[in-house]
Amino acid sequence: MQDIEVEHQESTDHANTLGVDMRKFLMWVFLGSDCLFFGAFIATYLLYRNSSIVGPYPHEILDIPVTSASTFILLTSSLAMVLSLAAFQRGNTSAARFWLFATAFLGSTFLGFQVFEFYHFAHEGLTPKTNLFGATFFTLTGFHGAHVALGVIWLFSLLGVSYTRGIPPEKSMNVELAGLYWHFVDIVWVVIFTVIYLLSSLPPSS
């Protein structure tokens, strides 16, 4: 075990046992925890998926083409995010800002879709109080939307920082952290799209 000792530290301030960025590590621990948060909401949705005693039921109201479009938008925003990070790491500030803005803009568009969807559902008679489908659906997608909204605020803040203080390549970790959070939100949506939309929007088989 002697051979893995770290004798050549840069400073005496603190050790870095694993040689990883502390904040990135913190973000990953948090994301692991957030898996349980969304997991419990998704579990509740699945447990109650056949329990609503009044309509509207999922197959009467979920709209696959519209949600496919918003899924595409969120996936594309993840692509813009990694391109922005890559540009920040290269020091190509103007490209980085463009892609960062694109990410935040696509995220905002996704939120617009969600607001439209919620209004549409309410108009069709589905509110969180209507039945268990409404309660579980709005709670799950609502908390996902809140995560997206927080991410959009974070991204716009970073854009502002890049204009005021600048984000040189050695500070690109600030962008990478926001990126990890953003991709996580995207990944959760992949699960929601699969489980809530594709798999439970079918009419009961004949």
Binding site: E5, A15, T17, V20, M22
Partner: peptide
């Protein structure tokens, strides 16, 4: 996990 003194496996 990340702030152990050198040698503390």
């Amino acid at each position: 996990l990340n702030m152990r003194a050198p040698g503390m496996t």
